[in-house]
Amino acid sequence: MSKHELQKGTISPLRGRNRTLAFQVLTVFPAVALVVLVIGYPVYYLVSLSFTNVSAFNLLNQSYRWIRFRNYQKLFNDPIFLRAIAHTLGYALGTVGVQTLLGFWLASAVYRMSRLQKTLVTTLLLFPTMVADIAGALVWRPLFDVSTGVLNYFIKALGFSTVNFLGDPILARITVMAVAVWQWTPYMFLFVLAGMESIDTSLYEVAKLEGASSRVVMTRIVAPLIRPVLLVAVYFRITDSLRVFDKVFVLTGGGPGSATETISTYIQRTGFANMEYGLASAGGVVMLGIAFLFGLISLKLVSAYND
């Protein structure tokens, strides 16, 4: 091997690696730039606003100033905001929990159906998810009326006294959650069903031969095998539920009192109604933090499963 060849041999692979690296950077750059632009900058702007006293009255002349953590102090000293966090977490965990259980139950029932039945039932079940949140709530609102609502009509017909779905603080919370369960259970059902379809049928057959009940099949075979997919679905549902606004706004407006106040209605009230954008931004950061926390937990659970 000549000196020249040796040099060529040592330099050439480096050049190749550099070229590969440059190609990789160039390929990834648009995606990274897009993420930074679409997610990074708004988050940075939100966080920076949360440390200012910006409001409608100082926004246009740019006379707002840094007030350090005062917005956060105000938020965490406000019992309504703390209640809003509790309601939001309760709503997200409660609705997603019920949606997951019902999703399993529906999927196990639909799984045993013929292909035609499966297609028909799945299509029908998916209808609520295609409805916009606000439209769903508007449809349900008159049904919950104490005097003229269809639900109370049947309740009265069965001989029971009327139910104050939206006027009672606890019932109002449950009612809003029930509408969410109605709308988003099919989403979980679809994930579970898809997971079930991907499992080797021989496992079901063995379980059947061993005399395992449906419950055992679901909890011992299906659930563990589809866990990663399910975790992703649960994560999506939880982060989406944390943003709940439309349903609450239409059905109760956050009331009675603050019974159904969520972080989003709180942010809407401070940001859009009271025009305190700095304070509302701080609320947004808290919401983002909670969603981020759920994201970390989900990732941890998925990686624990993979390990």
Binding site: V146, F165, L166, G167, G253, G255
Partner: peptide
């Protein structure tokens, strides 16, 4: 009505 906490113009 007991659900006036959700009442506005329309109701």
């Amino acid at each position: 009505p007991p659900d006036v906490t959700s009442y506005e113009y329309g109701q």
